[in-house]
């Protein structure tokens, strides 16, 4: 190969590499789409990672702005709050010289921020009309500290199909609220359409209370966990009432979660749902099923998987050796 050819090849590699290059002197920004294909009304989630890829401790680089489809103006939610800025009364505001340094972040530090840009970029409004390909970009507020200065990712919005299409038509237009509140209740999503994509978000963000105050370890002593939750004084009847209320809630959740995970085992929030599904099963008397889900969970990644692995390891350690 001629030298010139090698040179051009090297330059090509360099150009290809540059946008994603690691700047040894600063922070590296990564924009990760949790999915690259969405349906209308689905929360469009991206993960922003800022990693100190240098060899020294660095100040926090702050964040930056998001831009959709080449817009000049950064994304702002429609209902962005406006605030009264702070200040001090005359003669009282003699603060120390402003310092923007603060504590330094060690090399390897990663700041992660999950961003619902369907909310932040107002994409939920008339989302059906947004079907097609889109491009989301992040620009750091301190480009001298962060590279690249413009990191972009593309994604696609496709028309809902099947049960998702049915739910989509039934949902009220203000889809921003769909994950938690009355909008979902109106279509009774978890009971009627547990296999829809939308149900996954409801399951991920609205779990039975007891599953959020306990860890998987509570399954080692289900009765204790239930009583810990249910015993608020007032006598045994009150305790049993709380337990019954919680178990009813968990049974309903488990029914929907089981159906959903069966249809969407790879859903982006499947580990969280599976963890709560397992707890609901275990705390309502279905320990074999719970253990099966924990086994499945342990094969995945993330903190839920780690918790499952730890639980299983502890359980194995506690079992008598044969």
């Amino acid at each position: 190969m001629k030298k010139t050819t090698l040179l051009f090849a090297a330059l090509a590699v360099l150009f290809l590499w540059l946008p994603e290059r690691v700047d040894a002197q600063g922070w590296t920004a990564r924009l990760i789409m949790l999915q690259d294909r969405f349906i209308p009304g689905e929360p469009l989630i991206a993960m922003l990672e800022l990693e100190n890829t240098s060899t020294t401790a660095l100040p926090n680089p702050g964040t930056g702005d998001f831009f959709l489809d080449g817009a000049q103006q950064p994304c702002r939610p429609r209902d962005l709050p406006m605030i009264q800025v702070p200040s001090y009364p005359p003669g009282q505001g003699a603060l120390t010289t402003p310092q923007q340094t603060g504590p330094l972040d060690a090399p390897g530090t990663i700041h992660r921020q999950e961003i619902n840009f369907s909310y932040w970029c107002n994409m939920e409004i008339g989302a059906a009309s947004l079907i097609g390909r889109h491009r989301l970009c992040f620009r750091p507020s301190a480009p001298s500290l962060v590279s690249p200065s413009d990191v972009c990712r593309s994604f696609e919005i496709v028309a809902p199909q099947g049960v998702d299409k049915t739910v989509w038509k039934a949902l009220p237009p203000r889809l921003r609220d769909m994950l938690h509140d009355a909008s979902l209740v109106k279509v009774n999503l978890l009971a009627n359409f547990p296999t829809s994509t939308y149900a996954g978000y409801a399951l991920a963000h609205s779990a039975p209370t007891l599953t959020t105050m306990e860890s998987l370890a509570c399954l080692n002593d289900v009765n204790a966990a239930l009583r810990r939750y249910g015993n608020r004084g007032g006598g045994e009847a009150n305790t049993q009432g709380h337990i019954l209320e919680a178990q009813n809630e968990m049974r309903a959740y488990a029914k929907a979660a089981g159906a959903f995970l069966g249809a969407h085992p790879d859903f982006v929030y499947a580990p969280q749902i599976r963890r709560m599904y397992a707890m609901c099963l275990g705390l309502t008397g279905h320990m074999p099923g719970a253990m099966a889900e924990i086994q499945t969970l342990s094969t995945e990644s993330g903190k839920e998987a780690a918790e499952a692995q730890a639980f299983l390891a502890e359980k194995a350690a506690a079992e008598p050796k044969s």
Partner: peptide, 17 residues
């Protein structure tokens, strides 16, 4: 922005809902 003359902006992506 400075502490004595702050310029404040929402944290991008923050969920105010």
């Amino acid at each position: 922005g400075t502490c004595s003359q702050p310029v404040i902006e929402p944290i991008p992506g923050y969920d105010f809902i």
